[in-house]
Amino acid sequence: MNVTIRVWRQKNDQSEGRFEDHEAKDLNPNMSFLEMLDVVNEDLTNAGKDPIAFAHDCREGICGTCSCMINGKPHGPESGVATCQTYMRSFQDGDVIVVEPFRAKAFPIIKDLVCDRSAFDSIMHSGGFISIRTGSAPDANAIPIGKEVADMAMDAAACIGCGACVAACKNSSAMLFVSAKAGQLNLLPQGKPEKDARVLNMVATMDEAGFGNCTNQYECSAACPKEISEEFISKLNRDYLAASVKSVFKAVPSTMG
């Protein structure tokens, strides 16, 4: 099969970008979308042109590196997969496929289809953890955790941090990401002691990073390659509200001012 890709080219965050059309010929429908880009890049290199920069690594849908907006949907037409798991059989012979980078103020473009998602890391630094010193953990079976809770936590933990939620949201909101990360830890007994501080800090960092606000449309969840549910956003809202209200009324130890 043959397709044309209309791909976004941009030298860096400062420069203006534009679309370029490239032909991808003699493709096998079982090729992945990224393998199709490999083919185009080999052609570009052989023609003495600059190949298209695109983020990729594991190519099995788990590292969360790949990040293209394909025909107006993050990670391409199929649901529940990352770009690297999108196969050419999802397109028709002769298609013109529009490929853009994820766009958000908090995700500045580095080059072509590659954007900087370090804002996610900053959110994690501010609270996406349980403070446990190495070597000081009690026996793993000391605290039983019901299967349902463990499974819910696992549902949230499936997040691969790709940023499709931000890319799909018309407000570039990062609520699904933050809610998945916070939700996993808040659900587990181990995460309870730091629950309030966690949500307050993570949301504050999220706000600072310049993400938009959630308008409860759940495009994020629909675009998520791991199909993480918007229920976690509701949980984050609840945990955040509870933490805020508690912070008004709860007594604090004298050492904490």
Binding site: I130, I132, A137, P138, D139, A140, G146, A150, Q184
Partner: peptide, 17 residues
């Protein structure tokens, strides 16, 4: 032990272990 304390959601049985 360390990973469970960090919140790694290992698979569990119905009894919670």
């Amino acid at each position: 032990d360390q990973c469970v304390a960090q919140g790694v959601p290992f698979a569990r049985e119905y009894g919670g272990l």
